Simulated assay, not measured.
Amino acid sequence: MSRISINYIEFYCKHIDVIKAFYGSAFGWTFTDYGDDYTAFEDGALFGGFHRNPEETAGGNPLVVLYTKDLEGVKDKVIVAGGNITVDIFSFPGGRRFHFADPDGNVLAVWSE
């Protein structure tokens, strides 16, 4: 079995331009935009992103994203282990992913190319 590890962290936000200006100025992070509602960041050690999403609350918990080469297999394991799929597999620029809630309700995502 391949090891699954934290690969990416995603935050919700209200205003992408304000977020980019803040983190760029405060910490020197660099950004790559993917449409009007998403910007990815690099801080020199970790990659992540900010997603403008009116259905989620900015300032809430970040979305921790795990990586795997076997997306469907990991999804099946999550279900068997008692997780609940909250967003089924979908495509995005660079890959595919799904979101799940663990038994305590913590939501994470898993992605693959």
Rank of each mutant, 00 (worst) to 15 (best):
I9P: 14
V18M: 08
A101G: 01
Y38N: 05
F41D: 01
E55Y: 00
N53P: 00
G105I: 06
G82A: 08
I79D: 13
V80A: 13
D102Q: 07
V80E: 07
S112E: 15
G105N: 10
D76P: 07
Y34F: 13
A101K: 06
K69W: 08
R52S: 06
A81Y: 04
T30F: 08
L71A: 02
A81N: 01
I79T: 12
Y34N: 06
G83W: 08
T86E: 09
R96N: 10
L108P: 02
V74F: 15
F11G: 08
S5M: 10
S91L: 14
D33F: 07
S5R: 09
V107L: 10
K75T: 05
D43N: 10
P62A: 02
G83Y: 03
F90V: 12
E113C: 08
R52Q: 09
S112F: 13
E56M: 07
T32K: 10
A45M: 13
A81G: 00
C13H: 05
E10P: 10
W29I: 05
D43H: 02
T57F: 04
S91F: 08
M1P: 01
N7Q: 09
Y8C: 06
L71R: 12
S25E: 11
F90K: 11
I6F: 14
K75R: 13
G95V: 14
G49R: 13
F100C: 03
A58H: 00
A45Y: 12
G49N: 04
W29S: 01
G95P: 01
G44P: 13
M1E: 09
R97P: 03
V80D: 11
Y34A: 03
I9H: 06
T86C: 06
F31M: 05
I19C: 05
N106I: 09
G28R: 15
N106Q: 06
V64D: 01
E72H: 08
A81C: 03
W111S: 12
D17Q: 12
Y8V: 15
H51L: 12
V87Y: 02
C13N: 05
E10G: 04
S25A: 05
S2L: 11
V110N: 02
F41R: 07
C13T: 07
D70W: 10
K69G: 01
D37M: 07
G49W: 05
I4P: 02
S25T: 05
V80C: 10
F11Q: 11
R52H: 03
G94T: 10
F41P: 12
N106L: 12
T32C: 04
K75G: 04
V87R: 14
F27Q: 04
P62E: 05
F11W: 06
S2D: 11
V110H: 03
Y12I: 04
N7T: 12
V80W: 11
Y8F: 14
F22V: 02
D104E: 11
P54N: 00
V80S: 08
L63H: 04
G73D: 02
F27S: 00
G49F: 08
F98V: 04
C13P: 04
S2H: 02
F41H: 07
F100K: 02
Y12E: 11
D104A: 15
L46K: 04
D102M: 07
E42F: 15
E10R: 07
E42R: 08
P54T: 00
Y8H: 14
Y38F: 12
V80G: 00
T32G: 07
N53G: 01
N53I: 00
Y38S: 01
V18R: 14
A109G: 11
A26D: 00
D88P: 09
S112Y: 15
